[in-house]
Design a protein around this nucleic acid. Structure first.
Lengths: 166, 166
DNA sequence: GTCTTTCTTGACTAACTTAGTAAATAATGT
DNA sequence: ACATTATTTACTAAGTTAGTCAAGAAAGAC
């Protein structure tokens, strides 16, 4: 009888799937769509993400002005701006809600209040950490990710419209 | 009828209470205990944290060699090292499990494997973010927090043993 | 103008994590 | 012996995550 211990250590300073999938999806639109709209089902297949779930994430990204959508046949999603003008930080702000590691940094946004603010020595440390994270993610653009992918040799998929003519 | 919208924005790149309480508790031992043991009930009262919950956190901190404990009357917890040798990053590593924002950075630790590692352009970004966070938290010590508290004018509480003689 | 494709919106849910509570026990000092 | 304080293990309610499901609306093809 195996003594399987249930103490796998997780890390909890973590990003939700919404952010991770969101960044990968925007990258996918940029990398595989050559300016044309890219369809949810193709992104879902390439990135191995549930198409239904992806639609929820795209909703937020569209409302935030990061991507645009077009319905109907040959519809799909496109970048609202050039990839060098889309920061990874933007995407995370939209999908994750921000970078504050604790709620008390931003009482209005979190809707929670802490009475100990005046005497709290840790609060400013958390705040500074969140700012460092935000600065870092704002320094990386979707174009940077595409450049990386090329260097890694990730194959660009031909878009469907050109496949029709093979 | 108020149209109360249920869309309070949370931030999820967040620290759990275990880390937040953990750092505050170690600070409290350093600041209010003058080298003597500090009891759970006093820390819990000053920091407004459930004493039972605090005990769980102290267990991890003790196992990690950050604090030491003594049972029985006049028992309590003390720092295992000088406050200038205890990094905030250490406490978070113990209570939070690390700084990886996503599991795929560290497959052995997380116990989860991702097939997409070879082609994943986002993974190294997450990794770098986690390292920045770790470096920052490792640059802050408990002594730094105590210095801050003094500058803020946080009152040091007399320890109980001296109170007996008033 | 109907049909198909594709995005849009909102409701719903199972599994998991968090933030604790509770109870019995063991060590230590008086 | 007795009171005090930490130790260990088990348990739980509430909330969050990571989705699924279903009905609808716009746009183009025919």
């Amino acid at each position: 009888m195996t003594n399987l211990v249930n103490n796998v250590i997780f890390s909890f300073m973590r990003l939700s799937t919404k952010s991770r999938y969101g960044v990968r999806a925007v990258f996918d639109i940029s990398y595989h769509g050559g300016g044309d709209g890219v369809q949810v089902k193709d992104i879902a297949r390439r990135q191995e993400i549930s198409p239904r779930y992806l639609e929820q994430i795209f909703q937020k990204l569209r409302d935030a002005g990061i991507i645009t959508s077009k319905r109907g046949p040959q519809g799909g999603y496109s970048l609202a701006r050039k990839p060098q003008n889309i920061k990874v930080g933007e995407i995370i702000r939209v999908t994750e809600g921000g970078f504050d590691p604790v709620f008390c940094i931003n009482p209005e946004k979190s809707g929670k209040h802490c009475d100990r603010i005046a005497e709290c020595v840790t609060r400013l440390i958390w705040k500074e950490a969140g700012e460092k994270l935000e600065d870092f993610f704002d320094s990386v653009t979707i174009q940077d990710l595409c450049d990386r992918a090329e260097r890694l040799g990730v194959q660009k998929e031909q878009d469907r419209s050109s496949m029709y003519y093979i």
